[in-house]
């Protein structure tokens, strides 16, 4: 059986419209390419053309012929005020829809901003509660060439960690980085680099660099980024120094 045999078998079914909708589409597509099937189907349709007349005629209700004539010759006209009213309605709906979408966007944006603020506030509250309960809190204003902000250091007894906060500092210039140093009796011990964005405080939580009694303060510097492993000699410019 060839692929075309399926079409041969179903010519009658297609002409009578008894094929499944999907098969009907496949067959109709085939007809666009197959003259033989197209002619055969046309002949079948012609032969069956009068079959609908096997049913009895339906008596016409009064006025139907006139209504059909009117429908064909004078399809309902739409006056300008009809489409103008429709246009106005459509415009109103569009406007309302636009306002609603804009309002939703605005509300969505405000909601996101509010959530961000609430998160920031919660984090700040946590930090403040730790600061308020801290045994030692040191603060220093940062003043350097192009660098102004704050530098805060406190010890959280609950977690037994040192917390460093820098705020209002602009991002370090290209090729530079902020560097934290712990001041001990043995000299400066390098801490981590700090990243500041100028808008939000930067928090760091660090383990103590050595015995508690040996710890005397901290230093913040800014200098070349990637200058190699920090030594006990701070490089760059010292921005702030905290001492107990």
């Amino acid at each position: 059986m060839t692929a075309h045999d399926w079409y041969l078998d179903n010519r009658m079914a297609f002409a009578a419209r008894t094929l499944e909708p999907d098969d009907e589409s496949v067959f109709a597509n085939h007809l666009t390419r197959c003259e033989e099937c197209r002619s055969a189907v046309a002949e079948l349709e012609r032969d069956l053309a009068w079959l609908p007349m096997g049913l009895a005629p339906v008596p016409l209700r009064p006025g139907l012929i006139h209504a059909l004539m009117e429908g064909v010759l004078r399809p309902r006209r739409i006056h300008w005020w009809n489409w103008a009213a429709g246009l106005a309605t459509a415009a109103s709906v569009s406007l309302a829809l636009g306002v609603w979408i804009a309002a939703r966007r605005e509300i969505g944006g405000l909601k996101s901003a509010l959530e961000a603020r609430q998160g920031w506030l919660s984090a700040t509250k946590d930090s403040l509660s730790a600061i308020m309960g801290a045994e030692r809190v040191l603060q220093e204003t940062v003043r350097g060439p192009g660098y102004e902000g704050g530098f805060l250091l406190f010890y959280d007894q609950d977690t037994q960690r040192w917390n460093v906060v820098v705020h209002d500092l602009p991002p370090a210039r290209a090729g530079e980085a902020y560097q934290l140093w712990f001041a001990t009796g043995r000299g400066l011990v390098p801490g981590p680099e700090l990243r500041a964005n100028g808008q939000r405080p930067t928090f760091l939580s660090l383990p103590a660099p050595g015995p508690w009694s040996d710890f005397v303060g901290a230093v913040l510097t800014v200098g070349p980024a990637g200058a190699g492993a920090p030594s006990d000699r701070p490089h760059g410019v010292e921005l702030a120094r905290l001492k107990f």
Partner: peptide
């Protein structure tokens, strides 16, 4: 010719209604 249309409608509508109502 609108009269031709009227004749056509008058002639065949009962049969069309037969198949479409069925």
């Amino acid at each position: 010719d609108e009269r031709a249309l009227a004749e056509l409608i008058e002639t065949i509508t009962p049969w069309l209604l037969g198949i479409t109502q069925a």
